[in-house]
Design a protein around this nucleic acid. Structure first.
Lengths: 147, 147
DNA sequence: TGACTCATGTCAGGATTCTGACATAGCCTC
DNA sequence: GAGGCTATGTCAGAATCCTGACATGAGTCA
């Protein structure tokens, strides 16, 4: 590389590292969720519903970083599996609140434990405060890109 | 949340923050690459080829975190656009080396500049050393998950 | 030499997600 | 009340990526 190098060096690029870490995390989560019959998006949706019961499909889509159309299909899968229920009548406007069923909460408990183990493995090389520092840095990335 | 909370709290989960940052970065990169007629995977492939000319399709797939099958389609698109060329004779084994064309290098230069601006924006809230610290933390995540 | 293992390239099929478009309901302003 | 704006839910179609499978070429070892 004695010539003029590219404007982006993959070895030092934060974006590339981010993509790599996400890819590895994605694979690890798929490995532990597959035995439970859940995809990552399905798990994320259940986790969101546990923290915000009655959330709208559009809201879940934003929280899971997918489109409304994709979340609609995800919810169809979860509903046919008996893990969530969609109210038939709109609460306000066109919003059809979604909620976890007992089976959904049960499945989520197992999935959360599995994902927790993956997160612990991911932080296995961390010192005290590293997780907090990493979260803060990632937040600043998001703010910088949105501002 | 006075009841027993879930094992994973999205507000403090490193994995969720990682997913969020990646999603925002992904959207920002798509925005700047769309005018250039490149997808993120196509751009990543060009960048890899610039740093490792003659790389195999399978190698590019690993570097871009997709399957060989997906990379094969990506290369078809790039080749039909005249940005890369695939040698017809295997160099060793079944490896068909791929290389950038002059048009590919030109397009990559514009794309690299655009992506560089996105990376700069992402690091706009960073102090000295923050980028290095973030890269180191992400590396430790990858090591932890792989070990 | 022959069997085994691994990596590469490719074909076929399916799953997931996306873009584009439309109708409906609430909110705000005039 | 009328119009404009936004958000939600849905339908239709296309693009992207994946899993599974197969054949080929190279290296290893009995």
């Amino acid at each position: 590389m004695s010539q003029a190098g590219p404007a982006v060096d993959l070895d030092t690029s934060v974006g590339y590292r981010l993509k790599q870490a996400t890819a590895v995390l994605h694979a690890a989560m798929e490995d532990v969720l597959r035995p439970l019959g859940l995809s990552i998006t399905q798990y994320s949706t259940l986790e969101l519903l546990a923290q915000r019961p009655g959330m709208s499909s559009a809201g879940l889509a934003r929280g899971a970083f997918v489109t409304r159309q994709s979340m609609s299909l995800v919810l169809q899968g979860l509903e046919s599996g008996g893990l969530v229920v969609k109210q038939e009548r709109p609460s306000v406007g066109r919003v059809l609140p979604v909620e976890l069923t007992a089976a959904g909460r049960e499945r989520l408990a197992a999935a959360s434990a599995a994902v927790r183990s993956v997160e612990d493995r991911m932080r296995s090389g961390f010192d005290d405060g590293d997780a907090r520092r990493l979260a803060a840095l990632l937040d600043r990335c998001v703010e910088g890109l949105r501002g």
